[in-house]
Nucleic acid binder design. Structure first.
Length: 759
RNA sequence: GCCGGGAUGGCGGAAUUGGUAGACGCAAGGGACUCAAAAUCCCUCGAUCGCAAGGUCAUGAGAGUUCGAUUCUCUCUCCCGGCACCA
């Protein structure tokens, strides 16, 4: 082949062909077995695609192309998680409406993704900001509302003073700053909409056992749900009808409970008959002004106040113990009250030492027996709290609720959906939703529902939109349902899901909640949406720091495609290392895989009349097995390496027989689809499905065996793979004669691997 | 503090899960081709001793189990992720 490898030309050519032939359209009716292979859909940011996106998308693309070659009917869709703050913040700065910015970014993303030759079914593209999508987000909200899975309550919530909105607990970092804006989160008492995710806490923790996910991701989710088992035990108050119910995981230490502590928020703090009212009220007020983070940041310096004149009775030994209020006890966990066992709990011990309370060493009891003896109940508690979904921002799906003149909330009936996001608003945040300024929204509400009716003006957390998009991909143009039962039956659950590990507790937990809730509403017949999950690791800059505009070390995938071609970029990102690992970018290495592709392009092929080269044939069969196994376990780095080894062998051999060449192109096709398509066309070979290996051709006629003497490698011998122990030992002893200085004490032969002699 | 996961040449990484450590690639050095350069091709490439054959050491540190340990066990150091006054 005299022509030079010109990726620009051949990539454009094949991308056009694929697009025109709708080469990757999933078949809704097919006899073939299905595979639903999904990427976490991106937020279409103005910065464009990131090399990290490319890594995950290439991995699933290789997997998808491989499964198609194996005869599967593959659903591999792409869409846009398009609502969100960056576009809105940009609108505040520039006045350009978010719709415009978002669509522009989407067009850019789509173009970038297509330039990589990723095999998505573009007929199924969805964007969460489109009315024909958010109509169903709203419909689902309304369904949940009717079934009691959505409720409104006044609560102390996280307020982001920069983005001017409330946030879910999951969006606040451990240091008390907002995940998105970095602002220090404040507490506000506001009336907000919540999804009752806690109804599913137990199942969300338990059914993780059913899925093939990274163990660490499962553990992180279980930690977030934070189930703990223990007892609820009543401590009656002396001379009164009251009793304090505590939650403890250690009922075995009940004899050591020397005082009881109520959280400042506990209802009994206002009703118990204690003497120091003023002092207690002042303390409670002070605690209320602190955020959870302040309460824990102050750490071990514990504060509290005793309820004077009130005593609780330890039900185990009938002892009267003091009752305190202290903010180290949290109102929203357990019963908001604890029995303090200073001898067995560090926190109680510090508190007892500070305030001079009794510390008593005791013998432990059996926890369940003790619980039963004192009439307690064995229960479970969760750290997980309900999911706050209201946002006081513009660029999101409007919450489909209207209020009647009495202020009662009603779900907007289906015939009025989509409940359109109004456009007659200013984007500047004022602490209440921009939708509140819309005349059109108010008029629309009164026109449809009547005078005095008012619209809800908050929008939904964007995580609501992304909690069900994988359902929509199965039936994206359905105007009657969020997806038909038949389509969901055909495609779901998702067989492989790939995305960043940063979504461990947010998106993945919410999507699982939606799945379980919709199952219980009768729409689905399965429990878990994502059967197999893998994460792609962060790609660092060439200087091993995080890529950031601030450091000026961001690698733009477009530049790389321009310089090296899409096939080289794809192959390089796969060759970098394990998918899940954090690894630095290296532009020299991408030049290396480009060299590999050039060598493939130049490979000499022809009809070879010699008898087949057995060694080469063996290597081809080994490579078929290796590449297939590696793709299935997403070890693309070692698959690429195996292909390189095969190419090296081909070059050494000389003119490559066409039948072996065709197999090689098939193996390379999922990784470098443009180059291989072009070479297949040029060479005039016809390719069938994914090649099969012949198990009888996997081992060569002779193998090298290591020989150790006293644990040290001394020689290698060449043997038949099925050599007997006697043959092997004979050959080994001969090879290491000079090391066998005394009587042989032991001989070990592991066929195919090693001979170990001890003297 | 608790729970996960890591640490292998100058660099990215490989090692069939206890069986020849460093595959594959990058970088580097030497050579061929060329007037020259690029591209391409060939050779070397963990450290150390040796002219060589070959020896010795070596997978974060230290111990242990084993004929044999990057892999298993224990202790420690550092890095990454999650949780953290959740009773």
């Amino acid at each position: 082949m005299a022509s030079t490898y010109d990726p620009k030309e051949i990539e454009a050519k094949w991308q056009k062909k694929w697009e025109e032939s709708r080469a990757f359209a999933a078949e809704d009716t097919s006899d073939k077995p299905k595979q639903y292979i999904l990427d976490m859909f991106p937020y279409p940011s103005g910065d464009g695609l990131h090399v990290g996106h490319v890594e995950g998308y290439t991995a699933t693309d290789i997997y998808s192309r491989y499964q198609r070659m194996r005869g599967f009917n593959v659903l591999h869709p792409m869409g846009w998680d398009a609502f969100g703050l960056p576009a809105e913040n940009y609108a505040i700065k520039t006045g350009v409406p978010p719709q415009e910015t978002t669509d522009k970014s989407i067009n850019n993303f789509r173009k970038q993704i297509k330039a990589l030759g990723l095999s998505y079914d573009w007929d199924r593209e969805v964007g969460t900001h489109n009315p024909d999508y958010y109509r169903w987000t709203q419909w689902l909200f309304a369904q949940f509302f009717e079934k009691g899975l959505v409720y409104k309550k006044k609560a102390l919530v996280n307020w982001d003073p920069v983005d001017q909105t409330v946030l879910a607990n999951e969006q606040v970092l451990p240091d008390g700053t907002a995940e998105r804006s970095g602002a220090k989160v404040e507490k506000r008492d506001l009336e907000q909409w919540f999804f009752k995710i806690t109804d599913y806490a137990d199942e969300l923790a338990d059914s993780l056992d059913k899925v093939d996910w990274p163990e660490s991701t499962k553990i992180n989710q279980r930690n977030w749900i934070g189930r703990s088992e223990g007892a609820q035990i009543k401590f009656p108050i002396s001379n009164s009808q009251f009793s304090i119910e505590v939650f403890t995981t250690r009922p075995d230490t009940l004899f050591g409970a020397t005082y009881v502590v109520l959280a400042p928020e506990h209802p009994l703090v206002t009703s118990l008959p204690y003497e120091n009212k003023a002092e207690v009220e002042a303390y409670v007020q002070e605690a209320k002004n602190k955020s959870d983070i302040d309460r824990s940041a102050e750490g071990k310096d514990k504060t509290g106040v005793e309820l004077k004149g009130v005593k609780a009775i330890n039900p185990a030994n009938k002892e009267e113990v003091p009752v305190w209020v202290a903010d180290y006890v949290l109102g929203h966990y357990g019963t908001g009250a604890i029995m303090a066992v200073p001898a067995h709990d560090e926190r109680d011990k510090e508190f007892a030492q500070k305030f001079g309370l009794a510390v008593r060493e005791i013998e432990l009891e059996d926890p369940k027996e003790m619980t039963a003896k004192v009439g307690g109940t064995w229960t479970k508690q969760y750290r997980l709290r309900d999911w706050l979904v209201s946002r006081q921002r513009y660029w999101g799906a409007p919450i489909p609720i209207v209020y009647d003149p009495e202020g009662k909330a009603h779900a907007i009936p289906e015939e009025h959906l989509p409940w359109m996001l109004p456009t007659d608003v200013e984007f500047k945040p004022t602490g209440t939703s921009p939708l509140g300024q819309s005349k059109e929204l108010l008029e629309r509400t009164e026109r449809i529902f009547g005078k005095g009716w008012k619209p809800e003006i908050d929008t939904m957390d964007t995580f609501v939109c992304s909690s069900w998009y994988f359902f929509r991909f199965t039936d994206p143009r359905n105007e009657k349902e969020f997806a038909s039962k038949a389509a969901m039956q055909q495609w779901l659950p998702v067989d492989l899901y790939v995305g960043g590990a940063e979504h461990t507790v947010l998106h993945l937990l919410y999507a699982r909640f939606f799945t379980k809730a919709l199952r219980d509403l009768g729409y689905l017949g399965f429990d878990e949406p994502f059967l197999k999950l893998r994460h792609q690791g962060t790609i660092l800059a060439e200087d091993s720091r995080k890529m950031s505009k601030r450091w000026g070390n961001v690698i733009n995938p477009d530049d790389m495609v321009e310089r090296f071609g899409a096939d080289a970029v794809r192959l390089y990102e796969m060759f970098m290392g394990p998918l899940e690992a954090m690894k630095p970018w290296n532009t020299n290495n991408i030049a290396g895989v480009r060299r590999f592709l050039e060598r493939v392009w130049r490979l000499e092929t022809g009809l070879v009349h010699d008898i087949p080269n057995i060694e080469l044939e063996t290597l081809v069969h080994q490579t078929i097995k290796k590449v297939g196994d590696d793709i299935e376990s997403l070890k693309m780095n070692t698959a690429v390496s195996a292909l390189m080894i095969l190419l090296n062998a081909f070059e050494k051999y000389g003119t490559v027989p066409l039948y072996l060449y065709g197999t090689f192109l098939q193996l390379l096709a999922p990784f470098a689809p443009h180059l291989t398509s072009e070479l297949v066309e040029k060479s005039g070979i016809t390719l069938a499905d994914w090649p099969q290996f012949d198990p009888s051709k996997l081992t060569s006629s002779s193998i090298k065996i290591a020989v150790q003497v006293n644990g040290k490698l001394r020689a290698t011998v060449t043997l038949a793979p099925d050599a007997s122990e006697d043959e092997a030992l004979l050959a080994a002893r001969e090879a290491v004669k000079k090391w066998l200085t005394g009587a042989e004490k032991k001989a070990v032969y592991i066929p195919g691997k090693i001979v170990s002699l001890v003297v």
